[in-house]
Computed example of a mutant assay.
Amino acid sequence: MGMMEGKVVVVTGAGGGIGRGIALAMAAAGGRVVANDLGVSLGGEGADAGPAQRVADEIVAAGGQAVANTDTVSTWAGAHRIVQCALDQFGRIDAVVNNAGNLRDRMFHKMNEDEWRSVIDVHLHGAFFVSRAAANHFRDQEGGAYVHMTSTSGLIGNFGQANYSAAKLGIVGLSKSIALDMARYRVRSNCIAPFAWSRMTDSIPATTPEEKARVERMKKMEAGKIAPMAVFLASDAAADVTAQIFAVRANEIMLMGQSRPLRSVHLGEGWTPEAIAATAIPAMRGQFYPLERSGDVISWDPI
């Protein structure tokens, strides 16, 4: 028996890349899968039921159980229809993988309202809506697992992704809150920051030799390498794992840090702006984080 035997899992954004790999792995581990995907472009244009259906058909052809779903994660009603699909088809829901995503990259000072809202809607609102749609079922059955996709673009930083970075760091806060609020019901919530070559990373510009070399290194990071961690976190084997952030890159798994105080300074008579400038900041400056992006911090080649 596989680690997901008897369980029903919703995978959003399952039509390709990381989501497809997770959906196939969940089914291979014995899970029954709702493969959700709108089949739109990275910018949100068009809609095609084909990607979700192809993944569902692939699972069924391999002897598994799956159904395709094309509802949007970005609305309350759409998210509830996704979860209801699992209930209608398989009678229950045990895990949610919030993987659906889009990109509207633009430098912050050029980003418009639509580029901001469209990314927040899919990533952050989508993660909340789908998670919330499953929450009452998890609570009533006293068990369930959430697996959310975050990104080092949010955890560390990146160029031209203010919308994406804000959404992905917001997902970390959402996951922690879910873990705290639903621990009493034995519901777990964790994040994965995936490094993988997919349709989303295929949009990364590569005009200089350095950028082209970086892209070639990224192509070695297979999307399917993310799936084992997602299956583990959704399974009963992870019953004592919650509120964590894991980065997965090729054959590496990294446990990511979370915000904690680094240094504290105290002044008995209280602080003035001048005292802060003269004393507090110099005392803390050694622990300041430099202005880095993801590639500067995780700079070694994939293993």
Rank of each mutant, 00 (worst) to 15 (best):
V11L: 05
V122L: 04
D121Y: 05
A62H: 06
I120N: 08
A52L: 02
A52P: 03
V11W: 00
D105Y: 11
I93H: 03
R20G: 05
S74L: 05
S41I: 14
T70Y: 03
A47R: 15
G50N: 10
L124H: 07
Q89S: 14
A61E: 13
G13Y: 10
V8C: 00
G15N: 07
F128H: 11
A77V: 15
A47G: 12
V11E: 02
D88K: 04
T70I: 14
A14K: 02
R54N: 09
G13P: 09
A62E: 10
F108D: 06
Q53H: 07
V34H: 01
G46V: 15
F128L: 12
T70S: 13
I18C: 08
S74C: 07
H125K: 12
W116N: 06
G19K: 02
A27D: 09
A135N: 08
V40A: 14
N69I: 14
I59T: 02
N102K: 11
G21D: 12
D114C: 07
V55P: 02
N102F: 08
E58K: 10
T70D: 08
A49Q: 03
I82T: 07
E113L: 12
G78T: 11
E113G: 06
A14N: 04
G78M: 10
M26A: 01
H123R: 05
R32H: 04
K7A: 00
H109D: 13
G101S: 11
D88E: 14
A14R: 04
V119Y: 05
A27C: 08
A62F: 05
I93N: 01
A25Y: 03
A28D: 13
H109G: 10
K110A: 13
V60M: 12
G43L: 15
V130N: 08
D114R: 15
A133G: 05
V83G: 00
F108Y: 10
R20A: 07
Q89W: 09
S131H: 06
A25G: 07
G63E: 12
M107V: 05
A79P: 04
V67Q: 05
S74T: 15
A95D: 02
M26K: 02
D71G: 03
G78P: 07
D94H: 06
C85P: 01
G126E: 12
R20I: 05
E45A: 09
V73I: 15
M111V: 10
A95C: 10
G63T: 15
P51M: 08
D105I: 04
F108V: 13
E45S: 10
V122M: 07
H123C: 11
G46H: 06
I82L: 02
R20Y: 08
G46A: 06
L24I: 00
V130Q: 09
I18F: 06
A28G: 03
V11P: 02
Q84V: 01
T75A: 11
G6Q: 08
G64L: 11
M4P: 02
V73D: 06
N112K: 11
R132M: 11
V122E: 10
G6S: 07
A52I: 07
S41D: 12
G31S: 00
G46Q: 05
Q65E: 15
A61R: 14
G63I: 15
L87I: 13
I59A: 04
